[in-house]
């Protein structure tokens, strides 16, 4: 094969793969701006789906609830995971290895097992009421804290240990040295861990379905129920939701990428210090 035709074949393959990944989302996005109720049906331009999305109380409640749950569980997970990583990094080898090993369990475990086992322990054995939101938040924390731990750990390993010691020699207490020296150095790991925790919580279905209060719905549990229901209005309003989330994720990812590019720039690095 000539190198030109080779190039064409390669590019075509990548484009087809991209179409597989994006065609469904993009087609749905186009249809979300029409009054059509199924794909392929002809419809005229309409913003009704977006109006429904923002004016139907149960939809607004579900979105607000999911976002709140994601933020609360991500904050707790970030605190636990970050301090866990710092503590484990400076612990004796045995203790550190123990934490790192147990930390891997929720990471490799199937989410359905995590959800089921959390529910069995907290609800069946301890008798905690699901309506208290404790099982749900605990489930989401345990789902995401290990990922915070994993994104903070490499930053700690890159850290120059002499900076901490220098701070102590200059009279800083351990707490001050930690908050002024160590934390700023690992901040990028903490932030990406937090971002990861938010998305894991927003994406989760399995843990929520076993631990949530009966009247509460996350985006996932709501969407799954809605696809089984026959309310066309709700179904097409979810197309609007999926379009909005798509645009938001797109913007966030590109902003973060742009910012990290700037940070990698050595001149920028110097300017920040």
């Amino acid at each position: 094969m000539s190198s030109v035709s080779k190039k064409i074949v390669r590019t075509a393959f990548v484009i087809i793969a991209l179409l597989f990944v994006y065609a469904p989302i993009l087609i749905l996005a186009v249809y979300s701006f029409t009054d059509a109720t199924t794909i392929g049906q002809s419809g005229s331009f309409s913003l009704q789906n977006y109006v429904t999305l923002f004016t139907t109380p149960e939809l607004a409640e579900m979105i607000f609830g999911s976002v709140m749950l994601a933020l609360v569980s991500a904050v707790i997970a970030t605190l636990l995971g970050t301090f866990g990583a710092i503590g484990s990094f400076y612990s004796k080898k045995g203790a550190g290895n123990f934490i790192s090993t147990v930390n891997q369990i929720p990471v490799v475990n199937a989410d359905v097992v995590t959800g089921f086992s959390t529910c069995i322990l907290l609800v069946i054995v301890f008798g905690i009421n699901k309506d208290s939101y404790v099982p749900l938040i605990a489930g989401h924390v345990i789902l995401s804290a290990p990922f915070v731990y994993l994104s903070v750990m490499p930053k700690l390993k890159q850290l120059d240990p002499s900076i901490y010691e220098a701070a102590m020699d200059l009279g800083a207490s351990p707490a001050v040295a930690l908050s002024r020296v160590v934390i700023p150095q690992i901040l990028s790991g903490i932030i990406s861990g937090f971002g990861l925790a938010v998305t894991l919580s927003l994406d989760d279905y399995f843990v929520a379905t076993y631990t949530k209060p009966a009247t509460f719905d996350t985006i996932s549990t709501y969407v799954v129920n809605a696809t089984k229901g026959s309310q066309t209005e709700i179904k097409t309003a979810l197309w609007a939701l999926s379009t909005i989330i798509f645009v938001l994720v797109f913007l966030i990812v590109f902003c973060m990428n742009y910012m990290s590019k700037k940070k990698d720039d050595p001149a920028g690095e110097k300017a920040r210090v």
């Binding site: 927003l202 969407v223 696809t227 999926s242 989330i245």
Partner: peptide, 28 residues
């Protein structure tokens, strides 16, 4: 790198919404 990012980005969109999109397409 941007193309890779575009491939990986769907990880961040709720999977039930993505499957809904795929379901509508397959249905059609």
């Amino acid at each position: 790198n941007v193309v890779l990012m575009i491939f990986v980005m769907p990880m961040w969109i709720n999977f039930t919404l993505r499957i809904t999109a795929m379901k509508e397409i397959l249905n059609a």
